[in-house]
């Protein structure tokens, strides 16, 4: 089975804190890491290979620093890593990103399943996975919480929608986006880590990909960020004083006033 996992390097969100005085993000010393949701995608990609044999490839689009994310994936046990990196890819929105990844995956040629994380923690759109499936002309199943089975050319998965679960059957090749329920990501072995430190990372630029230059990066992105601003801070709240009984009393009174209790 040929498995492709797409990942993104993001600022490690667990590190993101707000400066209480200026109410802005504290960015000093923020590490870059594999998008947390992609860790589940990687783990599932490796488990599928362990279960069904084959080859797991990880692909990422990003600047050359994203190599470290790919090395991390190699250390975990992925067989092959490809970085799509080119100045022409910069400024891509989800449409251009999906297109670029699709060009990369088409260049690989053979694949049975493509796995993406549910969304990234920086962009938080969850759009690249389904968009990529559309670009590749394959079906997708989003919010997959369990791969039940893969038999012959069929994939059976459980997806988690708003308030219910569905068992979905899809043909191969398909793309799935996975939630954190699907597995517990492993730690890399030291041996894998050492090998990954030295492993070559294949880098493909826009020439390597072929494709239409106008569809990459900022030129291929129909959406533009016009303005970025801090959200309006909430009004200062009220600290309810007194002993627990009196605190509860004050709270319930206020909730009754607001017709909430």
């Amino acid at each position: 089975m040929e498995i492709i996992v797409c990942i993104k390097q993001v600022p490690a969100i667990t590190e993101v804190r707000i400066d209480p005085e200026t109410n802005t993000l504290v960015r000093e010393g923020v590490e870059a890491a594999i998008n947390p949701f992609d860790m589940y995608a990687l783990e599932e990609g490796i488990r599928l290979r362990e279960r069904y044999g084959g080859w797991t490839t990880v692909m990422s689009m990003g600047p050359s620093q994203a190599e470290s994310a790919l090395r991390e994936a190699l250390a975990l046990g992925v067989d092959h890593a490809i970085l799509l990196s080119d100045k022409a890819f910069a400024g891509a929105d989800t449409l251009a990103t999906a297109y670029t990844l699709a060009c990369g995956i088409r260049k690989i040629g053979v694949y049975d399943i493509v796995i993406c994380g549910l969304k990234t923690t920086d962009g938080d759109t969850g759009q690249v996975g389904p968009g990529l499936a559309e670009e590749l002309g394959m079906p997708h199943v989003s919010y997959v919480r369990r791969i039940i089975d893969i038999t012959g050319k069929t994939l059976l998965v459980e997806r988690s929608l708003e308030d219910y679960y569905e068992e979905i059957e899809a043909p191969l090749p398909s793309l799935i986006t996975v939630t954190k329920e699907i597995n517990e990501p492993r730690l890399p072995s030291f041996k894998g880590k050492m090998a990954a430190r030295k492993a070559p990372i294949e880098v493909w630029n826009s020439n390597d990909l072929g494709g239409v230059l106008d569809r990459f990066g900022i030129r291929g992105s129909p959406t533009q960020v016009m303005k970025v601003f801090n959200p309006q801070p909430r009004l200062k709240g009220e600290l309810l004083q007194g002993n627990p009984k009196s605190q509860a009393d004050q709270l319930v009174k206020r909730l009754v006033e607001k017709r909430l209790a």
Partner: peptide, 23 residues
Amino acid sequence: ATSEGRSIAPRIATRLRTGLTAD
């Protein structure tokens, strides 16, 4: 921006090659 909406919107936007803004 429900599970359904977020699942099909990117497919539609990709097919139409137009912009999509999430959430």
